[in-house]
Simulated assay, not measured.
Amino acid sequence: MTILQEPIPMERAWVGSRLRKTDEWITPLTNADLAGIESALHAVSTRGLKWGEFDAASFPIGSLADKLSKISHDLRHGRGFVLLRGVPVEKYTLEEIQIIYWGLGSHLGTIVSQNAKGTLIEHITDKKPANLGDPNLRSYVTNEGQPPHSDQSDIVSLLCVDRALKGGESVVVSSLAIYNRILAEHPEYLLPLYEGYYHDLRGEGESGDINETSDVPVPVFSNYNDQFRAWFHSKKMRNGSRKKNVALSPLQIEAMKYIETLGQDPELRLDMQLEPGDIQLLNNYSALHYRHAFVDGQGHKRLMLRLWIEMADMGDFDPVMERWVRQGIPQRAWSKNKPVQALGNV
Results as ranks from 00 to 15, higher is better:
A230Q: 12
S222D: 14
L4W: 09
A293W: 15
R202L: 15
M237T: 13
I329F: 12
D33Q: 01
H289W: 12
L268W: 04
E169Q: 06
L4M: 08
E96V: 00
V340T: 01
L274W: 14
R323A: 13
D278C: 07
E204S: 03
L64W: 11
N239T: 05
G297M: 12
E96Q: 12
A342T: 03
W308T: 01
V346D: 08
L307R: 15
I121R: 09
H77F: 04
P339L: 09
V156S: 12
K117A: 06
Q252T: 00
Y179S: 01
H73W: 12
R291K: 08
G240L: 00
L34V: 02
V161A: 10
A57R: 07
A65L: 00
E122H: 07
H42W: 05
H42A: 05
L274Q: 12
K166S: 10
P266K: 15
R332L: 13
E322W: 07
G344T: 02
G315T: 09
I8S: 02
P339R: 13
L303V: 06
N245P: 01
T27W: 00
A247E: 10
S234W: 14
R332F: 10
G297N: 15
P219R: 10
L307C: 11
I178W: 14
S63T: 04
R238D: 08
D265V: 06
S72W: 01
K257P: 01
K338Y: 07
S214W: 03
R138H: 01
Y179I: 05
L34Q: 09
W102D: 08
N136H: 08
L94A: 12
K236C: 06
S222Q: 06
E204T: 04
T261F: 07
V156Y: 14
A164P: 03
D200C: 04
L159M: 15
G240A: 00
S63Q: 07
P217T: 00
A13M: 15
T93L: 02
I329V: 13
G109Q: 11
N211G: 11
M314A: 11
R20A: 07
Y224F: 14
P148A: 15
E267W: 07
N115Q: 13
V112H: 09
P266E: 14
E96T: 00
A116G: 00
G78S: 10
R306I: 02
S249A: 07
Y258N: 06
T261H: 11
E169M: 02
A13F: 10
D215P: 03
E188Q: 13
D200L: 05
A43F: 07
E254G: 06
A177F: 01
Y224C: 08
D318A: 02
F294R: 03
N337P: 00
V340Q: 11
I100P: 02
G36R: 07
F221P: 02
A40T: 04
G16Y: 14
T213Y: 13
T261R: 12
I8W: 01
R291S: 02
L176S: 06
W14F: 02
A312I: 03
S174M: 10
H149L: 02
L29R: 05
W231V: 00
G62N: 10
T22Q: 15
G145M: 09
R238A: 08
M304R: 09
D296Y: 00
G277T: 04
F54L: 01
K236N: 10
C160I: 03
N283S: 11
H300D: 11
L49M: 12
D296G: 01
G344R: 04
Y92K: 04
S69A: 14
P319K: 15
P192N: 13
A312V: 07
